[in-house]
Design a protein around this nucleic acid. Structure first.
Lengths: 238, 238
DNA sequence: GATCACAAAATTGCTAACAACTTTGTTGAC
DNA sequence: GTCAACAAAGTTGTTAGCAATTTTGTGATC
């Protein structure tokens, strides 16, 4: 019956605020979202793993309510599932969902390839004509898939940069963050690397020639083939 | 690079929602997000208008922290802008942004039209062969654009339903919620209604014939034309 | 009359305690 | 030995109050 507990701390813990000696200021909501997005995309936290509010709040040294807001964003992006009173877990990637993602990725990357071809000066792509030539052959021969993928991602980000369409960029980003892991498993499938390489040479050639529509069609075919390979070997991949 | 890591034990237990009693349980975060999304899409709240946390908390009878979480979601969707210590305002729709949205909408609706053609039995589209015939001519003649748009939206939602691709559906949804207002302004532009109608007759015919690829191409052309009309009359629309 | 300074009011952001729920560990009956 | 009831611990969800910041209103000065 001790009534309401009133905290009477007239002694304020004043001015702990800015900078202080302490270096890194507390990360904002977008900061934390970005960090967790990367962790999930890289599978530093496995699908199905639980994310604790308190745990994360301590790690980032922010109030728990901020983690809560972060969870709201992550949930709306479909990266985590929240169950009332039980917390948040990293979403699992269903097989069907992967195919849906690939269908969408197909048309969006096709669009970006076309736009990039229209927007960029043709010389932009010389770099990739070069890279997709001998060097990539070497990577395939040496089975150096990491270097292989690095080139791909460089190409991809250059395309998105020149497409100059933030809406498409954003949507593709939300696809990549879910399929990045899959991509690495597809490249190592038998024959896929060489097949994908020759498809990309065709795409780059069309872009260099300024033929956006052909480039778009070729890019779509490329992703269609990747999807087919995935379908064929699905039991080994997922 | 490890294999699967975590096994999640889901013991699904029947959950009794305790809202009950007369129905007006406190709305959840997704509920409120949905309501505000609609308000913004219908321009019940104007672009640039301020959204107050306390105000909304009182209206929905929920804690202010929940509104805060809602704002996090809305911000990540690009529907509102938040300025630290100053609150949230409804995002304004830049002209450039509208064109970006239309480029993306073009390829996504094209995809859905093709998928729907492949997935649905051909008779599905008879309804629209009929509707896009005499009835729509009447609407155009009578300048009953509301009825006109209702048919369009019915067609659109049927397509998305049969495309059976939740990823595309979700993305298109996030486009519609931003462009719905624009659409109503395009239809009333001189000649656009009849033009769009004849384009749609071609699309429906291809779908009825089971020719997905042609339908996709026609749908893309249709939206391309809509975009061109918009560009031509942009000063009257925005 | 216009401008700057300053204080009051309102709003956002944060903290910590509290309540509800879920999981886990233990005990006891069959 | 198995299962059910129950208590303890831990986690999530909620609430009220406080701190910090911006906005608004007022008055003095030039």
């Amino acid at each position: 019956m001790s009534g309401r507990v009133v905290t009477l701390k007239t002694k304020t813990k004043a001015r702990v605020r800015k900078g202080g000696g302490g270096g890194a200021g507390a990360p904002s909501v977008p900061d934390i979202v970005q960090i967790l997005r990367e962790r999930i995309a890289r599978q530093d936290v496995a699908p199905g793993a639980k994310l604790g509010e308190q745990e994360l709040a301590e790690e980032f040294a922010v109030p728990r309510t901020r983690i809560r807001e972060v969870f709201g964003v992550l949930e709306s992006r479909g990266l985590i599932d929240r169950i009332p009173n039980r917390g948040a877990v990293v979403s699992r990637l269903e097989l069907d969902h992967v195919f849906h993602l690939y269908d969408v990725r197909q048309v969006l990357e096709g669009l970006c390839v076309r736009l990039a071809t229209e927007n960029a000066p043709p010389e932009t792509w010389d770099e990739f004509v070069e890279l997709f030539g001998a060097p990539m052959d070497e990577f395939v021969k040496a089975r150096d898939f990491d270097a292989f993928i690095v080139v791909y991602e460089r190409f991809r980000s250059r395309i998105i940069e020149w497409a100059r369409n933030p809406v498409a960029a954003r949507m593709l980003d939300s696809i990549y963050e879910k399929t990045n892991v899959i991509i690495r498993r597809i490249v190592i499938l038998p024959g896929r690397a060489v097949e994908g390489l020759s498809e990309h040479r065709a795409v780059v050639a069309a872009m260099r020639a300024g033929d956006g529509e052909t480039a778009e069609r070729l890019k779509r075919t490329n992703l269609q083939n990747a999807k087919e390979t995935l379908r064929r070997f699905q039991k080994y991949v997922l």
